[in-house]
Computed example of a mutant assay.
Amino acid sequence: MSKAVDTLRHVSAIVAAIADRPVEEITTRSRLVEDLDLDSLQVVEIAVRAEEEIGMPVDDALLTEPEMTVEQCAQVVNEAAAQKALT
Rank of each mutant, 00 (worst) to 15 (best):
L32M: 09
V15M: 07
K3S: 12
D6S: 13
L32S: 04
D39H: 02
V15Q: 04
E34L: 05
V33R: 13
V44T: 07
K3T: 12
V58I: 06
D35M: 07
T64W: 08
Q42L: 08
Q42A: 14
N78Y: 03
I54L: 04
N78M: 07
E79Q: 14
D60I: 02
R49F: 01
Q75W: 07
K3N: 13
A85E: 14
A16I: 01
V58R: 05
Q72T: 11
E79Y: 06
A17W: 03
R29C: 06
T64D: 15
T27S: 12
R9A: 10
L62E: 15
I26T: 02
M56E: 15
L8G: 00
M1F: 06
P57F: 03
V15N: 05
V70Q: 14
L32T: 02
I14E: 05
A82P: 00
E79T: 10
L38C: 05
V15T: 06
L62R: 15
A47M: 06
S12A: 13
V23E: 15
H10N: 04
I14M: 09
T28H: 12
A16C: 03
I26R: 00
E67F: 07
S2K: 10
A16M: 03
D6Q: 13
E71H: 15
I46G: 09
A50W: 12
I54W: 07
E67W: 12
T7K: 00
A13F: 05
A4V: 03
S30R: 11
